[in-house]
Amino acid sequence: MELLVASAVGALTAGGVYLILRLRAFAVILGLALLSYAVNIFLFSTGRLAVGKPPVLDGYTVSDFAAYTDPLPQALVLTAIVISFGMTAVLVMFALGAYLEAGDDKVDMDGPDQPDRQIAATTPQDPESDGITFSFAPKERDA
């Protein structure tokens, strides 16, 4: 069982790292989600694996400590799961905001202290427009 859990941690880490090195925001978000799964499983597994020993006491006192798995890593991971959701949401907000402002969802900037891309010249009728329009129509069938 330890091999399965360890290999799951490894696979999730590998997948997460690969995805966060991608150049588009959505892939980075997915990668971070995978990495947080990996970290949560890893933290949980530091309590060592135990089957059928949930840390729910069945009496007033504890006679045998070995009858329960370690509850402390579980408590830590519980808040970690909830807070990493919060972090994912903030990250999604950033990605959306960046996309809507800049018109593309690349994560890399073009160069140090340089603006992102050449923005089209302003049209005379709308001095605020910068040539970015949005279309939420799918480009191809996303079968």
Partner: peptide, 24 residues
Amino acid sequence: DATLAVIAGVAAAALAFSFMMRDF
């Protein structure tokens, strides 16, 4: 990127495995 990811994954898996196989 894939190489780096695989190395990181193997490292993480090894770390998790060594944790789980030792008492604490």
